[in-house]
C-alpha cells in the first residue's frame, strides 16, 4: 500500500468517526451534544464567534481565490 492510499484510508476512518459521533449524539436525544451543539458552544462568546468568522473567511479565500 502506498503512503497516498494509506492517507486516504486514515481520512476515511476519521470521517466515519465524525459521522458516527454525530449519529450517536442524535440518537442520545440530548444527552450528548451534536456537531451543531459544538458549533453553538464554540461561538457563544462574541470573541470566539469573531474568530470562527475569520476562520470562515480564510477558508473561502484559501479554497476558492488563492
Amino acid at each position: 500500500m502506498t503512503w497516498r492510499a494509506a492517507t486516504f484510508v486514515v481520512w476515511a476512518v476519521l470521517a466515519a468517526g465524525v459521522a458516527a459521533t454525530q449519529a450517536a449524539a442524535i440518537a442520545s436525544a440530548g444527552r450528548w451534544p451534536t456537531l451543531a451543539g459544538v458549533a453553538r458552544a464554540a461561538t457563544s462568546h462574541p470573541v470566539a464567534r469573531g474568530a470562527v468568522l475569520l476562520g470562515w473567511m480564510w477558508l473561502g479565500w484559501h479554497a476558492f481565490a488563492r
Binding site: 465524525v18 459521533t21 459544538v38
Partner: peptide, 27 residues
C-alpha cells in the same frame, strides 16, 4: 429548539467531540 438541548457547561459530554475533531486536526 436544538435537538441536543443547547449549549451547557463544558464537561465529559464534550470529550467525545474533542477526541473526534482533535484527531482530524492532528492528522
Amino acid at each position: 429548539p436544538p435537538v441536543d438541548g443547547g449549549p451547557r457547561r463544558f464537561g465529559r459530554r464534550w470529550l467525545v467531540w474533542a477526541v473526534s475533531l482533535g484527531s482530524v486536526a492532528a492528522f
